[in-house]
Write a protein that binds this DNA or RNA. Structure first.
Length: 485
RNA sequence: AGCGAGGUAGGGUAGCCAGGAGUGCCCGCCGGGCUCAUAACCCGGAGAUCGGUGGUUCAAAUCCACCCCUCGCUACCA
């Protein structure tokens, strides 16, 4: 039994969860569930990032203290993940006491290794946008976002010697090719690191809402450093269950924050004398109805609304099925409906319904010889999931669904009687049973409903082969209802 | 500008790394079969100069060069 530590990023709580948060969390959940199915000892982390200037400002706007404000937003995340059937083992908040302790100890170690020095942060700042802008981003000396003039600001700050770790990072990428995943995105990072790395400002004087920088109490720890360390505080580092689950098997992140996880994070860990994680997997982004998602565009999709309308499993299915994990995709309701009607209702739902109808009408003994196991390749699906390829894994399951439907037609099951019919039903029920096991990480509710209708015990990956069918079939309506447009 | 990813039938994709008849899948379209099934399922068919040009090779979607187009990233904006 292997230990498996998987994480999502912790989400910034200046707003309620959107479709992107839901996507990352759901994909991680599928992997966590898959590993449990394999019998692994899984530790699955998600949580919230609650410090920093933006939260401070958002709190002021609501007339609350920062803590009151985050306490009011965090339940929305917790509830959302409940709705999504997310099976996280821990929900980490950066305002937790444990986290505070871990961050301080983590920084102490970096400080002791001589990688922190006092300096001056200098940069361009757009006051109305409240954003720092780099030299490169400037457009004719003006803010690239709003076009207004920018101010030069100077601020005392403590720096981390990131530049020092350039070669060690390149070595890490070379020795552990899986670290930068998916591999087609790896070159981007490698080339940028080769170009050289600037040291990083890791504290702020002007911000109050954050973890105290013990080495100089006029400063607080900058939010991203604070946030990254949560992967360790969830394990109660440096004690706790660290030895067992660290290094993490995979950090699931969106490609926008890949840099923090593939460059800054491992460098910080090296400095603190901690092993880097085994893999950082950067997934793609969703557009919505073909357009970039954003608050300014007013097209942010509320995942809870979608679930209310279509159900949890259809959305989970869509997440895994609409695009290969890693790549970008487009979220649209019409595409979601097309998948529900064409795949969940017509392929899967129909297969189960028609098979169970045949089974219930049949009075004889359900037994026979395996025929529908041809092409069933569990090892292949294991390999795909090992590569975090949920997309092709589901496709492989769907091949089973389609060939089972074909089987009924080819055998003309409705014309058969007696032993011949018993044999066909045996093959169908075994095939469906295996499909339901394989689907359990992706559509847990649906998997469970199929299992109930088959009347079989809960099973693991080892039962994904044809044996004797031991179940009491009891049909219970359609798995999915057609969505009328 | 630099770096990266991609351009394959009406749409969406796989195949490319380790060249071998345009080979596969999904949706859509056309025709047929069937009635166990939510007008569901199954079979067959039409539809592609594999972005362009040149090169390597007995053989190129696949390798190389150049060009065109689309998208992403460019660091302290989680």
């Amino acid at each position: 039994m292997a230990d498996y530590y998987i994480t999502t990023p912790i989400y910034y709580v200046n707003d309620k969860p959107h479709i992107g948060h839901a996507y990352t969390t759901t994909m991680a959940d599928m992997l966590a569930r898959w590993h449990r199915l394999l019998g692994d000892n899984v530790f699955f982390l998600t949580g919230t990032d609650e410090h920093g200037e933006k939260v401070q400002k958002a709190a002021e706007k609501h007339g609350k203290s920062p803590k009151e404000f985050v306490d009011s937003v965090v339940p929305q995340f917790i509830d959302a993940w409940k709705t999504f059937n997310i099976t996280n083992d821990i929900f980490m908040r950066t305002t937790d006491l444990q986290h505070d302790k871990t961050v301080k100890e983590f920084i102490r170690r970096i400080y002791d290794s001589g990688d922190i020095y006092k300096g001056e942060y200098e940069g361009w700042y757009c006051v109305p946008d409240e954003t720092f802008i780099t030299e490169l981003q400037l457009k004719e000396g003006r803010c690239p976002y709003c076009g207004r003039t920018v101010n030069k600001v100077k601020e005392e700050s403590y720096f981390f010697r990131l530049g020092k770790y350039r070669q060690r990072l390149l070595d890490l990428y070379e020795k552990h090719p899986g670290f930068l995943s998916p591999k087609y995105r790896a070159m981007e990072t490698i080339n940028r690191v080769k170009e050289g790395l600037n040291d990083l400002s890791i504290t702020r004087r002007t911000v109050k809402w954050g973890i105290e920088f013990k080495q100089d109490k006029d400063h607080v720890v900058y939010v991203w450093l604070d946030a990254l360390v949560n992967y360790l505080s969830a394990l109660r580092w440096p004690d706790g269950t660290v030895g067992r689950f660290w290094p993490a098997d995979v950090h699931i992140v969106g490609k926008d924050i890949a840099w923090f996880h593939t460059v800054i994070w491992p460098a910080l860990l090296m400095s603190a004398g901690v092993e880097p994680p085994k893999m950082v997997f950067s997934h793609g982004w969703w557009t919505v109805e073909g357009k970039k998602m954003g608050k300014s565009l007013g097209n942010a999709v509320d995942p809870i609304d979608i679930i209310r309308k279509y159900g949890v499993d259809p959305l989970r299915y869509y997440f895994a099925r609409e695009m290969p994990f890693g790549e970008d995709g487009d979220f649209s309701e019409s595409k979601l409906i097309a998948r529900i009607n064409g795949e969940l209702v017509d392929d899967l739902g129909n297969l189960v319904y028609r098979s169970l109808t045949l089974a219930e009408r049949f009075g004889g003994e359900i037994k026979g010889t395996p025929e529908l196991d041809k092409g069933l390749d569990i090892e292949r699906i294991k390999a795909l999931m090992g590569n975090l390829d949920t997309f092709n894994a589901i496709e492989a399951v769907w091949e089973r669904v389609r060939c089972s439907n074909r089987y009924i037609n080819e055998k003309e099951a409705w014309k058969l009687r007696g032993e011949q019919l018993g044999n066909v039903i045996y093959n169908l029920l075994e095939s469906i049973r295996i499909i339901s096991i394989l689907l359990s990480p992706f559509m847990p509710d649906t998997s469970e409903r199929i299992r109930m209708q088959l009347g079989v015990e809960k099973q693991g990956i080892d039962q994904c082969r044809f044996g004797e069918f031991r179940g009491k079939v009891k049909k219970a309506g359609h798995l999915f209802e057609k969505v009328k447009e």
